[in-house]
């Protein structure tokens, strides 16, 4: 019963929380640039408007790619908050990302195609760290099961600080933040127009946006999992940690310039494999 409640709460609340997070993100970014910035509810205004615009379809199969992207991402989060296998969650998330790749690819627009290719490269860059995170949880807790990890007495971050740093590192890629926002070229960088989302307008862009909110809430949930243990107080610590991580991402976004994909690959792999790898060895030796 509790499990169903959590899933329902996720499905209902995730878009609201995700949208608010994005609004706060835009506000804080603006303050960092000494601007007033848009209202916190701006992302909701944007999505509402997008649903009202005329739908121009470049290629029908684009919608066919976007719908699985949406549903698989919701499924990822639902599985996570239901307390199922964390490894499985990340596999479903990768499948969702692949659906997005196809949605951009089918339009055969040069910008969307380059954006899609870069998305694949980004997946290649962050995937090892994601898998290592799962391995780390297994070594620390002896299980992949999210509900068992959350219900144990240990605070995982104490056992796996290296994995945590690696995960926060790849969050920058997953959340499409500078210096790694190569696939959609957010903000004012427009060398790829809008990259992956170039040919998405109106309703389709709105779906993409809402899916990102679901995704962000899921990722923040994983960040929280590092701190949650059997003590209910730990949830408060997890929320504080999530806010700190989110702020850090905004700070990185606003203070760093764009990176070439080659450098992104190199830095991400070296950094995440090093931090997570050292942590992995230590955990294996201690056990």
């Amino acid at each position: 019963m509790n499990m169903i409640l959590r899933v329902v709460l996720y499905i209902v609340l995730a878009p609201i929380i995700g949208g608010l997070l994005e609004g706060i993100d835009r506000k804080i970014s603006a303050r960092m640039q000494r601007r007033v910035g848009p209202p916190i509810l701006q992302p909701f205004y944007d999505v509402k408007k997008l649903f009202k615009k005329q739908v121009i379809i470049v290629s029908r199969s684009q919608t066919f790619g976007l719908i699985p992207y949406f549903f698989l991402m919701v499924l990822t989060g639902a599985m996570f908050f239901a307390g199922m296998d964390i490894l499985m969650c990340f596999f479903v998330m990768s499948t969702a990302a692949t659906a997005l790749y196809f949605a951009a690819m089918v339009t055969s627009s040069p910008y969307a195609t380059i954006g899609a290719n870069r998305e694949l490269i980004q997946m290649m860059a962050y995937e090892p760290a994601v898998l290592l995170t799962c391995v780390g949880f297994y070594l620390a807790e002896g299980t992949f099961n999210v509900s068992e990890i959350a219900a144990s007495d240990r605070t995982d971050i104490l056992f796996m600080p290296g994995f945590f740093v690696a995960f926060v590192f790849i969050l920058t890629i997953k959340m499409r933040k500078s210096p790694f926002d190569t696939s959609t070229s957010h903000h004012m960088h427009q060398e790829l127009v809008k990259g992956l989302t170039t040919e998405m307008g109106a309703r389709n862009l709105a779906i993409f946006q809402v899916t990102e909110w679901y995704e962000n809430v899921f990722l923040m949930g994983v960040v929280g999992l590092y701190l949650v243990n059997s003590n209910p107080m730990s949830i408060i610590w997890a929320i504080i940690c999530i806010m700190a991580v989110y702020f850090l991402e905004i700070l990185i976004d606003n203070t760093s310039a764009r990176m070439k994909w080659q450098d992104m690959m190199k830095i991400t792999w070296i950094f995440t494999l090093f931090t997570a790898g050292v942590n992995l060895l230590v955990l294996m030796l201690v056990k």
Partner: peptide, 18 residues
């Protein structure tokens, strides 16, 4: 920052579709 049109929700997209 001086004029900050984004406070009205204005975004510069560069993509006619959007």
């Amino acid at each position: 920052p001086v004029y900050d049109a984004e406070r009205f929700g204005v975004m510069n997209t560069g993509d006619p579709m959007q």
